[in-house]
Design a binder for these strands. Structure first.
Lengths: 253, 253
DNA sequence: GCAAATGGTGCGATTATCGCACACAATGGG
DNA sequence: CCCATTGTGTGCGATAATCGCACCATTTGC
């Protein structure tokens, strides 16, 4: 049955790996079986294979991801020149704004941090780092990514949006969400506050696309950081100049 | 033939993915075929599968890793509480020492950066970030990892060591390398300079193991940073206190 | 002592995978 | 201009790998 050019076993194995996304520290065989919907025996054999290949390791009472997935991510980051060109620019912008600055892209229906920098003064961290996944609809990063993606992505995101709001300020109305994305496209930047995490606000600007998928540059801070008049303009200015710097040096595919 | 509990197709697919480790920005089908040693048609079908699953994407004239691998890495990092507890400790240590500080672990026969922080003063970066792979034998991180791993790992690393030195100072003699690892184990820290990159030196201390695999905390700087008398002791002190702080808070498996 | 959940595994039928083979385009050197 | 080389796409038959049911052991909780 089905496609001659599609290796089912591989797809199922990747499905098993994907069960560990979203901050699951460790999973047991039955849990993976439930999450993936695969047969129990199949899951077991796939997990054994993944362990032998070094992608999973057995802890007490469960399996967890092995450092090997980091090496894979390192391949992605290295190919993008993240270490050499992106990181310095982000650091500089973070210091200049005294705010957290991140480079993000899209994976399916989530925004993903590709790299991140925080100013030296920051004593608290929000806990998001490389590989962290954020919702597309309710964050500045996400909306800017949607604004630069095809319309079908927005449709999918709206269709898949969770019915439970993150905070009391989370916008749930489809039309208003469409408008927010449209606004981001027209203005050339996105702004969001309180919708994903109360007390947090973000700004995002586009950076061009390194393939099919767009990249954006974003900053996050507590809401009151944007109260001061003219602050938003300054943030946008720094972000846009940083975006240019990265666009010029990096992405030399 | 062969094992009933081993999914060959999955293993081959992962092999294809692994071809992209080591900073290959993009690979063509024939290149992957050569690197993996698999059949051409098989490689093609596996790649099509990987593209459809979102792990690879097609660029002009080649395939490259997709942001999806970052999400996977995010699962690993999130499970380790890297964002919340590790990052702040590294940042603090980096500022205190005014040196780059990194948390690393072992993937097969490489040391891998799990997280990293640089002081605000740093204007140049070595280009190593999360997921970067370093040799085990010729770096401080690597030797400390070897000192805390089983003896079979050291044997494998020695057997697999590349015959061509990284720099003119690279130690190639097996016995002296064994001694260096043994010394690291006895002293409780490892030191290396010039062997991997001329002009660079590193110090590493153990952090305990979060599973089978040990973790180490390390710092890197230019060689002259360690010339000042007493500097090494100060570095060790800060690293050890940071290691304790991470060991206390994190790794709550 | 029973019930439910987890872990391990054998085995036959199915079918997905393998890898050769053929076909075609683009490139470049002689 | 031709031929050798390299990359790409794909059909198909034989084989072997995968599937998933079934059975059994062990543990946990009531």
């Amino acid at each position: 049955m089905s496609d001659r050019d599609f290796a089912q076993t591989l797809a199922k194995g990747l499905e098993v790996l994907a069960c560990f996304e979203g901050g699951m520290p460790q999973l047991t065989l039955p849990e993976i079986t439930r999450r993936s919907g695969l047969d129990r025996a199949v899951v077991r054999r796939l997990c054994l294979t993944l362990v032998r290949c070094g992608y999973l390791e057995e802890g007490e009472g469960g399996l967890r991801l092995a450092p090997r997935v980091l090496t894979l991510a390192g391949g992605f980051l290295g190919g993008l020149q993240v270490g050499r060109v992106v990181q310095p620019v982000l650091r500089h912008a973070a210091e200049e704004l005294d705010m957290e600055v991140a480079l993000a892209t899209r994976d399916r229906l989530h925004a993903v941090y590709v790299d991140r920098a925080a100013p030296a003064s920051a004593r608290v961290t929000l806990g998001f780092g490389i590989g962290s996944a954020l919702p597309l609809l309710h964050t500045a990063v996400g909306r800017m990514l949607l604004a630069r993606s095809g319309p079908e992505v927005l449709d999918q995101a709206l269709a898949a949006r969770s019915p439970s709001p993150y905070t009391e300020a989370t916008e749930l109305d489809a039309d208003r969400l469409r408008t927010a994305v449209e606004t981001a496209r027209e203005q050339g930047y996105a702004f969001a506050r309180d919708e994903f995490e109360l007390g947090a606000a973000g700004v995002a600007v586009p950076l061009g696309a390194l393939g099919q998928v767009p990249f954006v540059l974003a900053t996050t801070a507590s809401v009151n950081a944007f109260d001061e008049p003219g602050r938003l303009e300054r943030v946008l200015d720094v972000l846009r100049r940083s975006a240019l710097a990265i666009g010029r040096l990096g992405a030399p595919r």
